[in-house]
């Protein structure tokens, strides 16, 4: 019932709209959508295009790829590398832990109430990034944080053993706070899409639970899991506020580098700054593209 409702309107619209009215481009027809395109054009597309244009502009005018060639400079490479390292790590860890939690609350035998608590909390935590999250971690694992103090009580000095909240490891811990919930929220519907009959059919045909998971459930879920991990990658790759609040904007991260470039030309080359920004857009566009392809496949299977 539901599925026919969601898929049908589009089809019927095409035929009904096309058949009953001659194709005239009535202004009133477009009136409803024009503000949308104007806003998107002025405040999303144009700003990006200007960066794209500037990134292709040479120091002495004319179009060139010079700026992109300079992306290999040490500062830029190391910022990108750190961004990618953090994003990959939190995408994989967040993906695995998020999947585990989603599995536990949907089919792990916990009372149904826990699923509700988990989804509501995930909605909150996934949107709790930024300054407050950074503060919360400072009070927990900062130099005088509560957990740091607790460790000290038991004789372990975290900060003398190489740990720092303002490092790779620290950022991972903080980012997971919004990465895991995002995974939970996106993967739960996919888990719900696993039909009980598939498990029963597999059992009925002689499969053990392990065989069912390895041959049916995991392969069916794979596009969703991979797709969501890519989404997590992008989510972390483009994150700025949390890292800024935690490190004061001085950590070597692609987003923070762009921030510094806006405030003052730290790269001593405006064109390179634009190229760094566009490089991020390209990486993000690429990951979103893969995500939508995988998502489409998974929808086809799980509908």
């Amino acid at each position: 019932m539901k599925s026919s409702q969601t898929s049908d309107p589009q089809l019927s619209n095409v035929t009904v709209g096309g058949a009953s009215r001659p194709p005239r481009l009535n202004f009133g027809h477009w009136l409803g959508v024009i503000p949308f395109f104007v806003f998107s054009g002025l405040f999303l597309i144009a700003p990006t295009l200007i960066l794209a244009y500037r990134s292709l502009e040479g120091a002495n005018g004319g179009l060139t790829l010079e700026n992109y060639q300079q992306l290999v400079s040490d500062t830029v490479i190391s910022a990108y590398a750190m961004s990618i390292k953090i994003s990959l790590t939190t995408a994989i860890l967040g993906g695995l832990i998020g999947f585990l939690i989603a599995w536990v609350v949907s089919m792990g035998g916990l009372p149904p109430r826990f699923r509700l608590i988990t989804t509501t909390f995930s909605g909150v935590a996934a949107n709790f990034a930024g300054v407050p999250l950074a503060s919360a971690y400072v009070f927990t694992l900062g130099r005088v944080g509560l957990v740091t103090a607790l460790f000290k009580m038991f004789g372990v000095e975290l900060y003398k053993n190489g740990f720092s909240l303002y490092s790779f490891l620290g950022l991972i811990l903080v980012y997971l706070y919004f990465q895991i919930p995002l995974m939970v929220l996106t993967i739960l519907p996919a888990l719900d899409g696993l039909k009980r009959e598939w498990r029963e059919a597999a059992e009925n045909l002689g499969a053990t639970p392990v065989q069912y998971w390895s041959r049916v459930a995991f392969p069916v879920l794979m596009p969703s899991i991979l797709g969501t991990m890519i989404l997590l990658f992008g989510n972390s790759f483009g994150a700025h506020a949390t890292a800024y609040a935690l490190t004061g904007g001085l950590f070597n991260l692609a987003t923070l580098l762009i921030g510094q470039q806006i405030s003052g030309d730290v790269l001593h080359n405006p064109g390179l700054g634009y190229a760094v920004a566009m490089g991020m857009v390209i990486i993000m566009a690429f990951s979103i593209l893969i995500y939508s392809i995988l998502q489409r496949r998974s929808e086809r299977w799980l509908k």
Binding site: E197, N204, G206
Partner: peptide, 27 residues
């Protein structure tokens, strides 16, 4: 159930969506 050797047909077909017809039959 997986020790019984009885075949079951479901109302919703319950075919494995990630497998072809032949792979389903071979499962």
């Amino acid at each position: 159930p997986n020790q019984r050797n009885v075949g079951m047909i479901f109302q919703s077909y319950a075919l494995f969506p990630n497998m072809t017809v032949a792979q389903n039959i071979a499962f």
